[in-house]
C-alpha cells in the first residue's frame, strides 16, 4: 500500500514537471519569434494590413490573359517533361532503395555492421534537403535537366530507403521467420516472404514520392534550369506575370490530378 502511494505521488510530480517543461517550451518559442521579428524589422501588423492591396494587385496581374494562353502548349510540354523527370527519379531511386533497405532492416539483415551502415547512408541522404542537393549538383554539373534529375534522385533515395526499412521491419518479420524455419534460402525469403509482404506499402510510398517530386521539381527547376521551374523563372524575370501565373495554375492542376490518380491506384493495390 505504502509503495503504491509513493508511486502515484511520483507519477504526479513526473506529470507536473512535464507540463512545466511544455509551458516553458512555448514561452521560449514565442520569445524567439518576437526577438527575430524585432531583429529583422518585421512587423506582423504590416503584413496583415497589406493583404487587401495584395489581392487587388494579384487580380490585375496574375489572371492569365490571351497572350499567355497561346503559350499553353509550350508550358504543358515543359510540365510533361517535369512529370516524367519526377517519375523517373522516384522509380530509379526506389530501385536503389530496395536493396539498401534489405541491408538496413533487422528482419532481412543479420550482419549488425551492414545494417547500421545501410541505415546511416539512408539517414544521411534523407537529412539533406532537396534544395541543398540541387545546389551541390548545380556546382558540379551546371544548369541542365540532368542536374534536376540527380537532385530529385538523391533526395528520393534517402526518403524511400528509410520508408522501406520501416515497412520491412513492420510487416515482414513474421513471414521471414516462418520461411527461415522451413529451410528457405536467403533469396527465397526475400522473394517469397519480404517482397509480397511489403510490395503494396512500397508502391504506395513511390506514388507519394512522385507527388512530392512534382512539387519539388518546380522548385528544383528554378535552381537547376530544368523543366517547369525554369519556364516559370523565365517568365517571371521578364516580368510576364500572367504567363508565370499560368505556369503556377497548371502545376497545381497537375499535382491535383496526380494525387487523385495515385489515390485510386493505392486503393486498388491495398
Amino acid at each position: 500500500m505504502n509503495s503504491l502511494l509513493t508511486n502515484s505521488e511520483g507519477a504526479g510530480t513526473y506529470l507536473k514537471s512535464k507540463r512545466i517543461r511544455l509551458f516553458l517550451f512555448f514561452v521560449g518559442l514565442f520569445a524567439a519569434a518576437a526577438l527575430s521579428m524585432a531583429a529583422t524589422n518585421y512587423h506582423i501588423e504590416d503584413s496583415f494590413t497589406a493583404i487587401p492591396k495584395v489581392i487587388v494587385w494579384m487580380a490585375r496581374n496574375l489572371v492569365p490573359d490571351g497572350k499567355s494562353l497561346t503559350r499553353l502548349p509550350k508550358i504543358l510540354d515543359k510540365l510533361f517533361e517535369t512529370v516524367l523527370m519526377s517519375v523517373a527519379a522516384s522509380v530509379s531511386a526506389a530501385a536503389l532503395s530496395f536493396p539498401v533497405a534489405l541491408a538496413g532492416s533487422a528482419t532481412s539483415c543479420k550482419q549488425r555492421w551492414l545494417m547500421y551502415s545501410a541505415r546511416g547512408v539512408a539517414s544521411f541522404f534523407r537529412n539533406i534537403p532537396i534544395v541543398a542537393w540541387a545546389m551541390i549538383f548545380l556546382l558540379t554539373f551546371g544548369q541542365s535537366p540532368f542536374t534536376g534529375y540527380v537532385a530529385l534522385f538523391f533526395a528520393s533515395f534517402g526518403f524511400l530507403a528509410r520508408a522501406f526499412i520501416e515497412a520491412i521491419d513492420e510487416t515482414a518479420a513474421a513471414p521471414v521467420e516462418a520461411l527461415r524455419a522451413a529451410g528457405g534460402s536467403y533469396g527465397h525469403i526475400i522473394f517469397q516472404g519480404v517482397l509480397p509482404s511489403v510490395l503494396p506499402q512500397m508502391v504506395s510510398w513511390v506514388l507519394y514520392m512522385i507527388e512530392t517530386n512534382i512539387r519539388s521539381a518546380a522548385l528544383v527547376g528554378l535552381l537547376t534550369g530544368s523543366g517547369i521551374g525554369f519556364t516559370f523563372s523565365i517568365y517571371y524575370k521578364s516580368l510576364q506575370y500572367q504567363s508565370a501565373s499560368l505556369v503556377v495554375i497548371t502545376i497545381v492542376a497537375v499535382v491535383l490530378v496526380i494525387e487523385a490518380v495515385s489515390n485510386k491506384l493505392r486503393r486498388l493495390i491495398l
Binding site: 513474421a174 513471414p175 529451410g183 533469396g187 527465397h188 509482404s197 503494396p200
Partner: peptide, 26 residues
C-alpha cells in the same frame, strides 16, 4: 506467420522451399 497477402495455396507451398534450388524457389 503467414504471408497474409498471398493465397492459401501459395502459403502452403512455402513449406517446400527447403527442398528447392534458389531460382525455382525465388
Amino acid at each position: 506467420n503467414l504471408v497474409e497477402r498471398l493465397s492459401v495455396i501459395e502459403n502452403v507451398l512455402h513449406g517446400r522451399l527447403g527442398y528447392k534450388s534458389s531460382l525455382e524457389g525465388m
